[in-house]
Nucleic acid binder design. Structure first.
Length: 653
DNA sequence: TTAGGGTTAG
């Protein structure tokens, strides 16, 4: 049986017909349904209507009207409603005053400064905004938790952290207890400052006061702990929440992804799917970078397929993360294919593509893209310049490097950071301009770190200037006495100039200090499985087959003129033994395994944790020609694309 | 009837 309409029930009971909805009711319901313009129109109609509606209509509809002004950005109308609130006495009502306070927080006054380029204009307008909001707040006859929370959120979101924390104390003093809203505004402050101690205090307060189950507090805690690199606590908060909405899943996923906890992030993604939560665009833009960091092309491709099926391939965040992922997995041509299909790339898409070409070579293509970007009126930022300088470094373009470096402050108003200085020092060092690099680092306006000096140390080793290497190493050891990499480079520099005793002495002192070199390893994905190799690793089931194939290649290479390059064997042993050492290098094992376990023509992608050695580089060039395959090798510094006996790095790395 | 949470490049 159909339920009878309420009016019919009322009529049957002998009641009068219900009154038509009041003005205030109509305005509020239009506003709550998102019909903001309609709500405003109704409010204005109400004000003009005759006979005048009851006096109570104004305070009953002002909050909704003010909310609509805030959403629609109608600041002038908001100001006249402010006057009406004062005239009508509605300002005494907390709901109206809070709605007005929110309007002033969300819609700062237009900047009084005539030129937006004027220094400090942004700060001035921010300060004016604060004062107009604060004035409304101070004049409120009555304040409730919403009033405090509204102003506090504004302070928290506008970098006025101390004021925000001060407001909590004031709020307590005023007899208003912080609530879940207060917590969700203040937690991002502790997150940004990575202040886990105060974050934990807030967590304790939330638990004691029954706010810990609130999803907003929950996501605040998850993000705070993740920003403090305590994803273990984030997971605990997440698992203890009684109900988890889609945003909480995404918060947890992003927290793991940003901390480099790849397996955990993938685990959260799988749990999310099993729980029936539909992935959202943000799910993919968080997760795709994980595949890039793992250099796992098969995983990245699976997510890409998911993105296409979900119709999300037009999302700029996802597209940029896909381009970056393909670059990091060694497939720059797919990255470029995606990039070329974007109608109007944003600064992030341009930057990841420029960096992709810088690291894969030919590096000049990166500079071509930079010019195209400028023609398209997209303004480069500090990260774009890092990419461009990296391209100059890999292409050995000293003059261009200087040009871009100087143009940052001259034409773009970007102050070069430590990283920009480090990259320019690298450009100079790689090009063999060692003295110039030394002077540049010594005179840079930011105190150079050990890592800036170590780029020069490496250059000294490559260009065989042991005297300067010793001087540079001294600087590094002052800053970082236990710098493993620098000890190794200096020791290798001694070895390559035949100073075996000094090399041995240095190695001995490293052993005495308990320093151990990171072992070299390489890996390759074959049939969606990762195979990891360390030097002379006999544990792989295909080891004998790999060595057999390597011997066959060696004979073919010898006929084509290959001579082992023992330059990078830093042990005082016979040449024949050195060749044996070279044969067992992990990247050779991984590459040969790839060749014999995949169909002819398949591109081989090898990843290595350290830089590729001179001999492996030369062998890979020969093998790429012998087997007619493209071999991509990612080392600690860049990507090498070997094809037909050549490498995209132009033998400069 | 007012206020709040997740994403891409080094």
């Amino acid at each position: 049986m159909q339920p009878r309409p309420l009016a019919a029930v009322a009529a049957a009971a002998g009641a009068t017909a219900p009154l038509p909805p009041s003005w205030a009711h109509r305005i509020r319901s239009a506003a709550s349904q998102g019909h903001h313009f309609h709500a405003i129109a109704l409010f204005l109609q109400m004000r003009a209507s005759t006979p005048a509606p009851p006096r109570s209509s104004v305070p009953a509809s002002l909050p909704a009207a003010l909310k609509c002004c805030t959403v629609l950005g109608l600041r002038a109308l908001g100001a006249s409603l402010h006057a009406l609130a004062l005239r009508s006495g509605a300002f005494a009502d907390c709901f109206t005053a809070n709605a007005l306070l929110n309007l002033y927080c969300k819609l700062p006054p237009p900047s009084s400064s005539p030129s937006p380029e004027m220094h400090g204009a942004a700060g001035q307008s921010e300060s004016t905004a604060f004062h107009s909001a604060r004035k409304v707040f101070d004049e409120m006859p009555k304040k409730d938790a919403v009033s405090w929370n509204t102003l506090l959120l504004w302070c928290a979101e506008n970098g006025r952290h101390q004021e925000a924390l001060g407001l909590i104390r004031e709020m307590w003093g005023d007899g208003c207890k912080p609530d879940s809203f207060t917590l969700s505004s203040v937690l991002p402050i502790f997150a940004e400052r990575a202040d886990v101690r105060r974050g934990m205090e807030a967590h304790g307060f939330a638990t004691r006061n029954g706010f810990a189950d609130d999803v907003f507090v929950g996501s605040g805690l998850i993000n705070m702990y993740a920003n403090c690199t305590r994803t273990d606590y984030s997971v605990r908060v997440f698992d203890n929440l009684p109900g988890r909405d889609a945003i909480l899943w995404n918060s947890m996923l992003a927290g793991c992804a940003q901390n480099g906890s790849a397996e955990e992030a993938l685990g959260i993604f799988r749990r999310m799917l099993r729980s029936g939560i539909r992935p959202m665009p943000v799910t993919f833009s968080s997760l795709i970078p994980v595949c890039g960091n793992l250099a796992s092309l098969h995983l990245g491709k699976q997510l890409h397929a998911y993105v296409i099926f979900g119709g999300l391939d037009g999302n700029v965040f996802i597209t940029s993360s896909l381009i970056d992922m393909y670059c990091k997995c060694g497939d720059v041509s797919t990255a470029r294919h995606i990039f070329d299909r974007i109608q109007s790339p944003d600064i992030v898409s341009w930057t990841v593509m420029i960096m992709g070409h810088a690291l894969h070579g030919p590096a000049r293509e990166a500079l071509v893209l930079f010019d195209r970007m400028e023609l398209g009126n997209v303004k480069p930022n500090d990260i774009t310049f890092l990419a461009v300088l990296t391209a100059c470094s890999h292409a050995g373009l000293v003059d261009k490097g200087w040009k871009y470096f100087n143009s940052m402050s001259d034409h773009y108003g970007i102050v070069p950071s430590l990283e920009h200085h480090a990259t320019l020092a690298d450009i100079l060092g790689r090009a063999g301009k060692l003295e110039e690099a030394y002077n540049f680092i010594s005179e840079m306006p930011i105190k150079p770190t050990a890592s800036v000096w170590s780029t020069l140390l490496r250059a000294c080793k490559v260009h065989k200037n042991t005297v300067l290497a010793e001087e540079v190493a001294k600087r590094i050891f002052e800053l970082e006495p236990r710098s493993m990499g620098s000890h190794v480079i200096l020791s290798n520099a001694y070895s390559s100039s035949g100073r075996w005793n000094e090399a041995a002495h240095l190695r001995k002192s490293m052993r005495k200090k308990g320093m151990k070199k990171e072992p070299a390893c390489s890996w390759i994905e074959v049939k969606n499985k990762r195979h990891v190799f360390v030097a002379h690793d006999k544990s792989h089931p295909w080891y004998e087959r790999i060595i057999g194939a390597l011997n066959v290649f060696s004979e073919q290479m010898a006929r084509q003129g290959y001579v082992p390059n023992t330059e990078d064997v830093f042990q005082d042993i016979e040449e024949e033994q050195k060749s044996h050492v070279l044969c067992g290098h992990s990247e050779k094992l991984a590459m040969v395994f790839g060749i014999i376990s995949t169909p002819p023509g398949t591109t081989i992608r090898v990843m290595k944790n350290l830089r590729v050695c001179v001999d492996c580089h030369s062998v890979t060039k020969f093998i790429s020609k012998i087997v007619g395959r493209e071999i991509v090798m990612r080392d600690a510094n860049r990507f090498h694309h070997f094809k037909d006996g050549n490498c995209s790095c132009g033998d400069f790395w």
